[in-house]
Amino acid sequence: MSTYQRPLALFWWLERRSYLLFVLRELSAVFVAWFVVYLLLLVNAVSDGAASYQEFLDWSGRRWVVAVNVLAMLFVLLHAITWFGLAPRAMVIRVRGRRLPPVQVVAAHYLAWLVLSAVVAWLVLR
């Protein structure tokens, strides 16, 4: 049987908003990895003493590093927000036999995020 298989268009991911979002979210993994590397570099610099920490800060202040970090933050935000958005689809929580409404599941996630961020901020700025 000879069948016809439609080839995938090069820009298929521009056909729909959801496809674009899908590709961007896949891409966000690279930036998440970048933040991990950046954090490790920071820890390494701190452990090497004040001079190397100052060097790290100077390097972080360079224009391209700031630009990369701002871009990375946008991608990580996209990652986090879409991740939280799907949480209620993955978690079906019943309280006294009733299913918890999706908004409450999302709200709980944002609340946890806020609390964790506050704790980290307190630890750092104290």
């Binding site: 959801s18 496809y19 899908f22 979210r25 896949e26 879409t82 799907l86 689809r89």
Partner: peptide, 8 residues
């Protein structure tokens, strides 16, 4: 990766 188009 949760594109969500299947449900749509």
């Amino acid at each position: 990766t949760f594109v969500g188009e299947c449900s749509a």
